[in-house]
């Protein structure tokens, strides 16, 4: 009689172990997905950062004297290069979004600038880049959401807790106006 009890107990322990292993495997996949998708977000952020010097030069070449915005752009770029962890980078890029938005708003009142082919091309590229950022951001947020769900939902949260997986990845908020980049219609 006693043997039967032991078999059942051992069986259950084995089942639990296999279950925890299964959870660990999927948590590894999910957190790697987050790293990969964050990589894509960073690539797009970099692409946008690369456009900024051209935009600044084009605007300056039209002899537009708006010193304040150029200072703000320089500050935003400095903050970008100083950003170390994910949250810092997200915040620094949010600042870039608002600074660029202000620059484009200013450009609205300068017809020579608006008609400048170089500036028009840069606006198209910027709009394309903002869209890519939006797409990459969505994938990143989705992967963080999948991961968070897994570590918080019963019964996987127990296994996640044992294995040490925490809610540690920030979401990227969509900034005001960043979703709908200015339509380029001339």
């Amino acid at each position: 009689m006693k043997n039967k009890t032991w078999i059942i107990i051992i069986g259950i322990v084995v089942l639990l172990a296999v279950y925890v292993i299964g959870v660990q495997r999927s948590l590894v996949n999910l957190s790697e997905e987050i790293n990969a998708s964050w990589g894509d977000v960073e690539i797009q952020y970099q692409r946008r950062a690369d456009l900024i010097p051209n935009i600044v030069e084009t605007v300056k070449a039209q002899a537009i004297k708006e010193q304040e915005i150029f200072t703000q752009i320089a500050e935003a770029r400095a903050r970008l290069s100083g950003a170390a962890n994910i949250q810092d980078k997200i915040d620094a890029n949010a600042e870039v979004t608002s600074v660029l938005g202000r620059l484009l708003a200013i450009a609205e009142s300068y017809p020579e600038l608006k008609q400048n082919q170089g500036f028009q091309d840069l606006r198209i590229q910027l709009e394309g880049t903002e869209n890519r950022i939006a797409v990459a951001r969505k994938y990143y947020n989705d992967s963080v959401k999948s991961y968070n769900k897994k570590i918080k939902v019963f019964p996987t949260n127990i296994a996640a807790g044992i294995l040490g997986y925490k809610d540690e990845f920030p979401y990227i908020q969509a900034e005001e106006g960043a979703e709908k980049a200015p339509e380029v219609k001339f």
Binding site: V18, G22, R25, S26, G39, D40, I43, S143
Partner: peptide, 25 residues
């Protein structure tokens, strides 16, 4: 131009089927 991009897109992100993501398990 940007060859590094897109290479990460091999996994499915949806909460989809357990069977597809972990065949051994």
């Amino acid at each position: 131009q940007y060859p590094e991009m897109g290479k990460s897109r091999r996994y499915s992100i949806t909460g989809g089927s357990f069977f597809l993501e972990n065949p051994v398990a």
